[in-house]
Design a protein around this nucleic acid. Structure first.
Lengths: 212, 212
DNA sequence: CATTTTGGCTTACACTTGTAAGCCCAATAT
DNA sequence: ATATTGGGCTTACAAGTGTAAGCCAAAATG
């Protein structure tokens, strides 16, 4: 890669990083101004346009990057789970760790999910869809769940996890531990419930007998 | 009430209504400026301060009002459910109707829940807590669930419903119908799962036998 | 080597924003 | 009847915003 392209990539990164760094509990992406980001990245405001058409384009880049990063981390966590132990428990733990070390990556997904730009919402939804889809296949394979039930189950699980993540962002570590426990309970509910619905479908007879 | 107090209340309402009316999929409360709201309410920008200290105060008012309105509507719906039929199904239907007729009331809760102001997040959380608490008691009483399990169950249910609500805002009616169906399935999962966990606690023995 | 491209810069402009200061006059209080 | 209060207004200002126009030097191209 030429010297020029290298430099360009470098300041592009500086912009993305600058934006990520300015995110916090009090500062959402949509409240960031182009000038602020440029300032933090140490470039002139108008130079911003050499890299992104506008703030929207930068934001979408961040959503994509963030979602990807999150998924990679979660996948690593799942490998750890394969070594043994409760899948649910370990996944929740991984998630909480990821959250703690990359709060801003999670923040942009969380916030823009209910944000003001349709493009953003769609982008976040796509990322979440990835999570759901991966998990759905896992559930189908490992628990022999029917495809559509697996889908609903996975969706419910992901929603609950995301939601807990949002709550966790506002907490100190001690409370997060408790939150994690409650989350695990809720996830178990969904899993148990999905099993029950599956059985009911597979064999209405048997289920009727068992519930007596 | 004196003529003066009456007038004051009237323009105060005009401000709140103006703000609610400006909300949309593309426009969140935090993106509204004081001047815009004043303009829409037909008063001078600086007159705003005769009623609210700043936009934050107006916003919190809206959250409280909105949450209250939502709860009242849902309670009416629950009465309808008492006439018979699936509680879950009827509640979901009510919710979807409420959503359709008052999208902006729901929007402000949804958006500010993950918003940028701690005060807002807390206010929304308080409103949601009301929902959870009401539902939790209902579950405890009607299904004989233990208090802590009831709480987790209610929380999961409310989260799933809220989440579906957010998705519904972006949909046309036909798709909402499908969404509602899937939501019902998920809610049933939670209910079934909570039952299972309850049984396991009440009588680990029996449950072991049944699952064979 | 000569030319073109490009990523940075500076300057400039038109807007919007929040809010301070202070006037006015009708409703209230004395 | 007179004095006070208070909800509206106008004017004004400093600050910040997005972005257009155009210059410059160094890298890339031929």
């Amino acid at each position: 890669m030429g010297v020029r392209a290298q430099q360009k990539e470098k300041t592009r990164r500086a912009l993305v990083d600058a934006a990520f760094n300015q995110l916090s509990a009090e500062r959402s992406f949509s409240s960031l101004s182009l000038r602020e980001v440029a300032r933090e990245a140490n470039i002139a405001p108008t130079s911003f346009y050499r890299h992104f058409k506008d703030m929207n384009e930068l934001g979408l880049t961040m959503v994509d990057e963030g979602g990807l990063a999150l998924r990679q981390m979660m996948r690593k966590g799942r490998q750890r789970a394969e070594a043994g132990g409760s899948v649910i428990r370990i996944s929740v733990e991984t998630f909480m760790e990821v959250l703690e070390s990359n709060p801003n990556v999670f923040r942009i997904l969380l916030h823009e999910r209910s944000g003001t730009s349709a493009a953003f919402r769609a982008a976040v939804e796509r990322e979440i869809e990835h999570f759901i889809s991966e998990l759905s296949h896992y559930v189908e394979d490992s628990a022999g769940r029917s495809p559509d039930l697996a889908r609903e189950q996975a969706e419910a699980l992901v929603i609950l996890v995301f939601n807990a993540g949002a709550a966790a962002l506002d907490m100190k570590r001690s409370d997060r531990k408790l939150l994690a426990d409650r989350l695990v309970t809720q996830l178990r509910m969904v899993v148990k419930g999905a099993e029950a619905l599956q059985q009911k479908r597979d064999n209405p007879e048997l289920r009727a007998r068992l519930s007596r």
